[in-house]
C-alpha cells in the first residue's frame, strides 16, 4: 500500500498540495510514482507562468509511460524545483519531500475541494 502524509491535500489525479500561507507546494503522491515506475523526466512550467485549477501544467515521464500534471489550484508559479531536472528519480525515492512547483494561490478556497490523507488513501483503495 502506498504512503500518505497527514496534513497535505490530495487530488484525484494524484497530486499533493502543502499549503504554506498563500503558497502551495505541489508534488505527486507515492501512489503516482509507484504506478509510473522509474521517472526519467519532469516537464515543468517556468516561473511567473499561470496555472489553472484542473488544467495541466506539465508532465512526468517514465520509460514507458507519461502522465500529465494537473494543477489542484489556480495561481502563479513562483518557483520550480530545478533539482528535478538532473535527478527526476527524486520523485520515486521521496515523493513527499520533493515538490515540483510552488504556486502563489489566487483562490486558496480551492483547497477545500481536495481530499484529506485518509480520504485519499480510501480513494486509492478503490482504484
Amino acid at each position: 500500500m502506498s504512503k500518505t502524509i497527514e496534513g497535505l491535500y490530495y487530488s484525484q489525479s494524484h497530486e499533493w498540495v502543502k499549503a504554506e500561507g498563500n503558497i502551495a507546494l505541489i508534488g505527486i503522491t507515492d501512489y503516482a510514482q509507484e504506478a509510473l515506475g522509474s521517472i526519467v523526466y519532469v516537464d515543468m512550467p517556468q516561473e511567473d507562468d499561470t496555472v489553472d485549477v484542473e488544467q495541466d501544467f506539465g508532465a512526468v515521464e517514465s520509460v514507458k509511460a507519461a502522465s500529465d500534471l494537473i494543477s489542484p489550484v489556480s495561481g502563479t508559479v513562483r518557483e520550480v524545483n530545478t533539482a528535478l531536472e538532473d535527478s527526476p528519480a527524486l520523485l520515486n525515492t521521496a515523493p513527499y519531500e520533493n515538490w515540483i512547483i510552488k504556486v502563489e494561490m489566487s483562490d486558496p478556497s480551492q483547497l477545500d475541494n481536495l481530499m484529506s490523507a485518509a480520504d485519499y488513501a480510501a480513494y486509492c483503495e478503490t482504484l
Binding site: 526519467v40 523526466y41 508532465a59 520509460v63 514507458k64 507519461a66 500529465d68
Partner: peptide, 13 residues
Amino acid sequence: TLQAREQHIRREK
C-alpha cells in the same frame, strides 16, 4: 529512447 514523447504512449497528446 525518450519514448514518452511518442504516439503509442501519449496518444492524442
